[in-house]
Each structure stands twice: as C-alpha cells, then as structure tokens.
Design a protein around this nucleic acid. Sequence first.
DNA 1: GCCAATTGTTTTGTATATAAAACATCAATA
DNA 2: TATTGATGTTTTATATACAAAACAATTGGC
Lengths: 263, 263
Amino acid sequence: MSESANHDIYFVPGLHRGLRVLEILGAAKTPMSLSEIARAMDLSRSSAFRLVYTLRQMEFLKDGEQKNTYTLGAKVLNLGFAYLSNQPITTIARPLLAQLRDTTGVSTHLSVLEGHNVLYLGSHQARSGFVSNMVTGTRVEAYTTAIGWCLLSGKSDSELAAFCKGLDMPPITKHTPTSFQTLKARVDQMRTDGFVVSHGFREPGGSSIAVPVWDQAGKVVACVNLSGPDSGFDFDKLKSFYLPETKATALRISRELGYEGSN
Amino acid sequence: MSESANHDIYFVPGLHRGLRVLEILGAAKTPMSLSEIARAMDLSRSSAFRLVYTLRQMEFLKDGEQKNTYTLGAKVLNLGFAYLSNQPITTIARPLLAQLRDTTGVSTHLSVLEGHNVLYLGSHQARSGFVSNMVTGTRVEAYTTAIGWCLLSGKSDSELAAFCKGLDMPPITKHTPTSFQTLKARVDQMRTDGFVVSHGFREPGGSSIAVPVWDQAGKVVACVNLSGPDSGFDFDKLKSFYLPETKATALRISRELGYEGSN
DNA sequence: GCCAATTGTTTTGTATATAAAACATCAATA
DNA sequence: TATTGATGTTTTATATACAAAACAATTGGC
C-alpha cells in the first residue's frame, strides 16, 4: 500500500483522493495528464481515471491546452470567493481599508490567523511604486511577522505555548523569534503598545504597521496592516500620522463588529 | 432513492457528494449543521456525517461560531487562488491593468468566457468615488454585457448559434439582445469596430469600454474593460483618450501572449 | 422536570466502489 | 515498418463504502 493506512472508518476515500487531485493540480504550475496525476498520488491509473472523470463532469477540472491534460476548473474559484464573502469581516473592512490606503498612500491589508499561518483576506495596493504580488489568499508563518505577533496577542499564554509546541521556528531575519520565550516577548510588547511597527523584521527594506481588530467579545479576530518598501514611507510621519490613522481604521472595523472596548 | 440515478459507472459518488457539500456551504450565507446539510442534499445523516468528517479533517470545512455548525475552510481559498495564478494571462495582465487604471483613473477589469458567463479574473478599482463590490471571481451572463459581446466575437457564427441554442435570454435592460439574431448583430458590430462602448447597456447609470485580447493564434481569449458610473467618466475624452488607452493596453497584453496581428 | 422531537454518533448487512489485469491506442525508436 | 513502452479505457472479482436502524445526547415546550 501507499502512505497512511485508513485507520479512520468514517473517512470517505473517494472524496479524500478527489480533493488531493485538486490540490496537486493547484500546486502544479502546468496542466497534468492522467498518468502524471496517478503517479503523483501513488494511485492506480484506473482509479485516477474515475476521479478525473468525476471532477471533470462537475467542472472542477477542465481540459488543458494539450490533449489529455487537465487543470483546475472555474468552479474552484466560486468556492474560494464564497469563502471570502462568507467572512463577514471582509465586506465590513473593504471600504475602510480602501479609505486608509487613499489617505496614507500606502498599501493596506486585512488578515486573520489560520492555524500557524497568517492568511491575507484582502488588500488594497498603493498606487505609487511597484505593484506587489497578489496577496489575498496567501499565507505566511505567523511567528515570522509583525502581523502574526499582532494576531497571536489574542491567545492566552498557555494557548501560545500550545501554538509553539512542536513548531519548528527557523529564523528568517535576525529579528525572527525562534522560541516560545522570544515569541512571547514580542506578543507581550504588542499587548502593551497596542500595535507593532516593523522595520525589516521579515523583509529587508520593508516596513509595516500592524494593529489588531476586536470583535464584540473583545477577542482579537483580525489585523489591519499598512506596509510597503521603506522608500515609500515617510518615517517622520509614522507616529504622528500613519499609526493613528491605522489605529482609527482598526477601531472602526472593530466597532462595526460590535466591539465596545476602548483600546 | 433520491435525484438522478447513477447511470455513470465511472462516477465516484463520495467525491461528487463531498463537492456538493462544499457548493451548498458556499452558497449558504451562514454556517450549517450536519442535519441541515443532510436535508439540503437529500441524504442520510450518517452519510452526511462521513462527508463532513472527511472534509473537516482535510480542512476544507471548519467549525462555525455556533456549536455543531460548519463553514467553508481556508483550503478552498488556496484552490481558488491556485486557479487564478495558473491562468498565465492574469499575471501578464495585472501590472498593465493597474497602469491603465492609474492613467485613466477608472476601474479596469480582465475577464474571460466560461460557458455562458463572463468570468472576472482580476480588477483594479478606481481610487476615487465609491468602492465597488469585489468583482474578481464573479460571473455575469455573457449575452447581457458589452464584455460578453466582446468575448463572443471569438466564436464563429455557427458556434454562436450553438451558444444561443437552448439559452434563455430574458432582457435586463432595453439594450439587452434577446435572440440569436440580435446578439449576433451586437457581436458583428463589435467585430467591425474592434471595441464596444456601453452606456447603461447593463446597469443604468454605468458606462464601460470593452476591448478584446488575442493570443498567438489570433483567437480572442480575454477582454480588457474600463468601467464605472457615468459620473466618473469624462465623456468628451472617451474617443480621444479612454478608448485608445484601453486598446493600447489590450494590444500590449496580446503581444505578451504572442499575438502578432495588427488589430 | 418531564416528555417529545431533533440532532449527532455508532453499528452492521449488503449493495457497490475499487484496483488489478486485460485491452486499445498512440509515439518513439531502430 | 516493426517493436517497445507508455498512456487512456474497459472489464471484473472482491474488498469496502454505504444507508438503515439503533443508540446517545441535546434541545424545546408545557
């Protein structure tokens, strides 16, 4: 047999493998043939055939340019955007983030914690300077970024310890915390300040401001973030302008979520 | 039994139903319980249980706020963005569309034909005026919009006839074509002009310019589109400025795809 | 605080999804 | 052109996914 045996009696193997086909085709930069899929999954060609047949019929796969090759179909886009629009926070935050981008001239982002990663839910790019990569939907390891520290401030110390347990924390830059203690120090600092300002903490030459968003229960549920290359920041105005604007935006979003605190 | 019997021996029912669970949860605006899912799919609770169990384990579903409810998980976002970034045209077009937005000050979009719909692959919102809804990933019936007519110009007359066959075409506005003949007239007009300018053709008070993008085979593969509320357009500059800029952008994208024609 | 109804979970006999093997089709090389 | 290897497709015997039924745990109404 291949990989992990099915200890789980409730598992639906057809579904499991079908979704893996989608994941593999998503990761592949180019369409794949039936045999390639079967090999990548360590599966018989006949079974791969049936999976592809089903996915194709449901329009989750479509034919590639080359004959007998397949790529993700447009249906997966539907699911992705259904996910985004089912997150109420994205629709609330969008106009406010656009406004923050307009008043500051810097790119703005909204992100949440998903497992060990920071997940970008939406962003508004600065108009000047280079156009960065699409960030919505991308993930970054939370322990490595200011946004991550900001989001982790929603966790209790014991939750944070559990978060670190078994987590490999190689340093990205000299600022990266590499242990529970150093990460906790970062998070505690964020808690007392109410924000994180990063100068090249993750990307050399890049700066950002991260401020938490609270829900009606007072829990940290998201993070508003201004970021860009150092060249695009006017550092004199950081504490007098960018930071208060970002905090105001985060608070406005929090208010719309029902937050009544005074952070 | 329920719905359509499984005539297809190659169908993987577990996969089929699992994906339907995702679609139903995507369409639902709020998390659903196991029983609700089972009822919506006309399925036994025990089967729904197994499907949800599998999807949850794979992180395609996650727990909702309420106990025993489920929503789409973040994994579906991965697929959605994998789809987008696997479309080479999106990465080619993105900076050029951003540039077009910057020089014109109007929102720009890239879209392709998917079945009977126009599918928005990416957009760059105008910075002034209201911020429109997220458009990437949304669909509009092709026969109703200037973009649709533009994209349909890639089809031969017989293909267009096949496209209309069995398609219900209720009018959205008084400009909507409602038959093969009237649609063909629209498409032919586009072919001779090389563009479509719409004044309230789909949305009263909204205007847009649509120009096709060609690939190296000379086939229409996408559409570049400027659009916004009438109030945001300077109509005097339409033919002298907006239109040539849009055409230039579309041609630049076409060139990058290998198009060598002179349209 | 009881009862009824609804929901989530487990069990289990049976209908069926599955992978091996056979077959068919194509591409490349000699 | 014949031969080899690989790929897509079909068949089929058997392992197993499935839905009904039983069970457990909630919830809501009176």
